[in-house]
C-alpha cells in the first residue's frame, strides 16, 4: 500500500504552488422556474493551481455542470464569486476553453475551420491561424481529416476536434463537462490516455467534470467529491499515484473505494431528497 502515500507525483507537487488559476469563493447558485426556486450549488469553495488536473465527481443532477458553467462564465453565481487568476469572472472568454459532452461542433464547418473558430473571432491573421490549427490537428491526431465535416467522424474523433478547438485558443484552463460520457468504453479509455498525453505536453490546468469514479481516479491529481444537490464540497481526495496508472493495482482500488464510499453516501441522500420533495 506504500504507493498511495509516498509515491512522488508531479501533480501532488504542483498542487502546492501559490497562484490559483481558478478560485471559487462561497459560491451559491439558485434557479427560479415556475415560482419554484431550485438550489443547485451552496457555499462552494475551491482553489485550483497552475497545471493541476482536478476532477469534480458527483451524482447526476447534483449541480456539477452548473459549477463548470459558472467557471466558464456561462452562468453567474447568485452569491459569492469565481476568480480567474485573481480577476472576477463576469462572462465567457477565450481564456477558459470548454469541452462539451455533446461535442458542440459547428456542423457546417470542416475540422480545420472548427479548430480555427476561436482564432477567427479573435481576428488572428490567416497564415497564423493556419499554422496554429495545423499544430493542433497533429496534436490530437487528426491529420488527414482536416477537410472532413463533424458528421463524417466517430464520436471519439469528434471530441478530438472539440479538444483541439479549445486548445487552439491557448486558454489558461480547460473546462471539460463529462467530455467522454457519450463514448463507448474502449474509446473512452483511449481518450483518457490521449487527454493525459496532451495534458502532460501542454501543462494546461484542467477542470474535469465526471460521474465516473474510475475515470476520476485514473486522471486526477485531486478529486473533489460533491454532495447531493445543492452541490458543495463533500471531500477532497489527493491521488498521488504515478502515471500511467494501473487500474488493477491495489493502490488504485483503495482510492476508488474511498471516493465511491463518499459518493454513495451522497447518492443515497439525493434519492431520499427526491422521495420527499420540500426537504432540503
Amino acid at each position: 500500500m506504500s504507493g498511495v502515500d509516498v509515491a512522488v507525483s508531479k501533480g501532488g507537487a504542483r498542487s502546492t504552488a501559490a497562484t490559483p488559476v481558478i478560485e471559487a469563493r462561497g459560491v451559491s447558485k439558485s434557479f427560479e422556474r415556475d415560482d419554484r426556486i431550485t438550489e443547485a450549488v451552496r457555499d462552494f469553495a475551491l482553489s485550483i493551481t497552475e497545471g493541476e488536473l482536478v476532477c469534480l465527481v458527483g451524482s447526476s443532477g447534483c449541480g456539477k455542470t452548473t459549477l463548470l458553467r459558472m467557471m466558464a462564465g456561462l452562468e453567474r453565481p447568485t452569491t459569492g464569486e469565481v476568480l480567474i487568476r485573481g480577476r472576477p469572472i463576469d462572462g465567457p472568454g477565450a481564456d477558459r476553453g470548454m469541452i462539451f459532452q455533446s461535442f458542440a461542433l459547428f456542423p457546417w464547418r470542416s475540422v480545420r475551420r472548427n479548430i480555427e473558430f476561436g482564432l477567427e473571432v479573435r481576428r488572428v491573421p490567416k497564415e497564423e491561424r493556419h499554422r496554429i490549427s495545423d499544430r493542433h490537428i497533429d496534436l490530437v491526431g487528426l491529420r488527414g481529416f482536416e477537410h472532413a465535416h463533424p458528421r463524417e467522424l466517430s464520436g471519439g474523433m469528434q471530441q478530438r476536434v472539440g479538444l483541439a478547438r479549445a486548445l487552439a485558443n491557448d486558454p489558461a484552463v480547460l473546462l471539460m463537462d463529462e467530455p467522454f460520457g457519450s463514448l463507448d468504453a474502449q474509446t473512452r479509455n483511449l481518450m483518457q490516455l490521449e487527454l493525459l498525453r496532451i495534458w502532460q505536453g501542454t501543462r494546461k490546468t484542467v477542470v474535469f467534470v465526471t460521474h465516473s469514479v474510475d475515470e476520476s481516479v485514473f486522471l486526477a491529481d485531486r478529486i473533489v467529491v460533491l454532495t447531493a444537490r445543492p452541490a458543495s464540497v463533500k471531500s477532497v481526495v489527493e491521488v498521488a499515484l504515478p502515471r500511467p496508472r494501473d487500474r488493477a493495482s491495489p493502490e488504485f482500488a483503495a482510492i476508488r473505494h474511498r471516493v465511491l464510499q463518499d459518493l454513495t453516501e451522497e447518492v443515497l441522500k439525493g434519492m431520499a431528497q427526491q422521495d420527499r420533495p420540500g426537504v432540503a
Partner: peptide, 25 residues
C-alpha cells in the same frame, strides 16, 4: 444552445455569434 455556448467560450462576441453561428445554423 450548445453551439452558442461553444462560440461564446471560444471568445465570440454577440454580433459574431449572430453571423457565425445563428445565421449558418
Amino acid at each position: 444552445r450548445m453551439l452558442i455556448d461553444a462560440a461564446e467560450t471560444l471568445g465570440a462576441r454577440r454580433t459574431q455569434v449572430f453571423y457565425k453561428v445563428i445565421f449558418p445554423a
